[in-house]
Simulated scan of single mutants.
Amino acid sequence: MTYEQIAEMMEEMGLPFAYHHFAEGESPAPPFLLFLSPGENTFSADNQMYFSFKQLDIELYTDIKNPELEKQIEQVLKRHKIYYTKSEVWIESEKLYEVLYETEV
Rank of each mutant, 00 (worst) to 15 (best):
T2H: 04
T2R: 05
Y3Q: 09
Y3C: 04
Q5R: 05
M9C: 04
M9Y: 06
M10T: 09
M10A: 03
E12K: 13
G14C: 05
L15Q: 10
L15G: 13
P16Q: 09
P16M: 07
A18Q: 14
Y19H: 05
Y19G: 00
Y19M: 05
H20R: 08
H21M: 10
G25V: 01
E26R: 14
S27P: 00
A29M: 10
P30S: 03
P30Y: 00
P31Q: 02
P31S: 03
P31G: 07
F32R: 08
F35W: 15
F35R: 10
L36N: 15
S37Y: 02
P38I: 01
G39Q: 07
G39R: 07
E40K: 13
E40A: 13
N41S: 15
N41C: 09
N41L: 15
T42E: 03
F43D: 06
F43C: 04
A45W: 04
N47W: 00
Q48H: 00
Q48M: 12
M49H: 05
F51C: 08
F51G: 08
S52C: 07
K54D: 14
K54H: 10
Q55W: 01
Q55F: 00
Q55T: 03
L56R: 07
L56N: 07
D57K: 06
D57P: 04
E59Q: 14
L60Q: 05
Y61D: 07
T62G: 00
D63R: 05
I64V: 14
I64H: 09
K65N: 12
N66G: 01
P67G: 00
L69Q: 11
K71H: 12
K71P: 03
K71N: 13
Q72A: 15
Q72T: 14
Q72P: 02
I73R: 06
I73A: 03
E74K: 12
Q75G: 02
Q75W: 06
V76I: 15
L77N: 05
L77A: 03
L77D: 01
R79T: 11
R79I: 04
H80D: 06
I82H: 02
I82S: 01
I82G: 01
Y83I: 12
Y83C: 06
Y84K: 13
T85V: 13
K86Y: 06
S87E: 09
S87W: 02
E88H: 05
V89L: 10
V89Y: 04
W90T: 06
W90D: 11
I91M: 13
I91A: 08
S93P: 00
E94L: 15
E94I: 08
E94N: 11
E94C: 06
E94P: 03
K95Y: 09
K95I: 10
K95C: 12
L96Q: 12
Y97V: 05
E98N: 14
V99P: 02
V99Q: 10
L100R: 10
L100S: 12
Y101C: 10
E102Q: 04
E102M: 12
E102A: 13
E104S: 00
E104N: 12
E104V: 08
V105F: 12
